[in-house]
């Protein structure tokens, strides 16, 4: 966003028009997408009004009564919503610390494997869990970590790491870490794909130069690979931060139970339980709109901060 160097005299100055004419080719590349978004994203956006109206599917949005911020007020003053908000935010923060770097580290380590076959095999296998639905994967996890018959407790007790089996799914304090680690295990390979593509895009002459300079392996990674993929890391980081108030529904829905709900309730499960099954469209829309606004704000802040620190941003 650094192109506006010309002083703004008039809206359509001659130079501007000339410059515009000279870049018609790139402008025409962009326009179809802009029109596309107008039709498929902007036209339906009148649906956002639902959040400020008392909407039911048997009347049109235009016919529904305005209620202003009533539904916003309703959820913001609800204790269970606040609890869900806290859990969502906490899990995203832990996720940012543990879950976010994992695919990156995995990609960097994988890149250091010299045996090409092993490298490809590992990479292919690592993305398999992406294709398992949470219903299957979660069911398996519940069994593996169960109190009486779970393999995990069995192994931990036998090796003497713990004295008594742990009630993994029943004790609220374990939930955040378990959810994040299992999600990480499921998505590590898939999440690494973009990094691997970015690493592949790094100019190999830079590596050659580094080798000639006698740089060690670690130094090559640090001075060549990482700077080469900073752009990708920054983009993913900015969006992870922007999505701090989103956490996947499917996983939590499977792993949640009435014992761990104090830490496992997230915004989406809360909405599902209290809203969607009763067709409270306006209430759900109010939460959705708030989340979108916050995400936009976080995005701008994260982008700004990132430009200050790494001199890289989204664009």
């Amino acid at each position: 966003m650094q192109e506006l160097t010309l002083p703004k005299k008039r809206l359509f100055s001659k130079e501007k028009f000339k410059r515009f004419k000279n870049q018609l080719d790139i402008q025409t590349m962009v326009w179809p997408g802009i029109i596309f978004l107008f039709i498929f994203s902007y036209i339906p956006m009148y649906g956002i009004l639902i959040a400020f109206k008392d909407y039911s599917i048997v009347s049109t949005i235009a016919e529904s009564d305005w209620v202003g911020f009533r539904y916003f007020q309703q959820f913001l003053t609800n204790d269970n919503f606040i609890r869900a908000l806290r859990n969502t935010l906490a899990m995203n923060m832990i996720g940012l610390a543990i879950g976010f770097p994992a695919p990156l580290i995995f990609a960097l380590l994988l890149n250091e494997i010299s045996n090409q076959r092993f490298k490809r095999l590992t990479q292919t296998i690592s993305y398999l869990p992406h294709f398992l639905s949470w219903v299957i994967y979660g069911g398996l996890l519940i069994s593996l970590f169960s109190l009486d018959t779970g393999v995990v407790n069995d192994v931990l007790v036998r090796t003497g790491l713990i004295e008594r089996p742990i009630f993994w799914w029943g004790e609220p304090r374990y939930f955040w870490v378990l959810a994040i680690l299992t999600n990480m295990a499921k998505s590590i390979g898939w999440g690494a794909i973009l990094y691997l593509a970015a690493i592949a895009g790094v100019d190999s002459q830079l590596y050659e130069a580094a080798v000639i300079d006698g740089a060690s392996r670690f130094k090559r990674v640090w001075h060549v690979t990482i700077p080469g993929i900073t752009g990708t890391i920054v983009i993913l980081m900015i969006f992870t931060i922007a999505n701090s108030f989103n956490y996947g529904f499917d996983q939590i829905w499977i792993l949640q139970n009435n014992l761990n709900v104090s830490t496992s309730e997230i915004i989406d499960t809360y909405i599902y339980k209290t809203g969607l099954s009763q067709m409270r469209f306006s209430y759900a829309a109010a939460v959705g709109v708030s989340r979108a606004v916050i995400a936009m704000i976080l995005l701008v802040l994260a982008n700004f901060t990132s430009k200050k620190i790494t001199e890289q941003g989204l664009f």
């Binding site: 519940i142 169960s146 109190l147 009486d148 018959t149 009630f167 029943g170 139970n257 009435n258 014992l259």
Partner: peptide
């Protein structure tokens, strides 16, 4: 105790 954390299929 697993009874409290089981889902239907379990």
């Amino acid at each position: 105790l697993d009874n409290f954390t089981m889902d239907r299929s379990h």
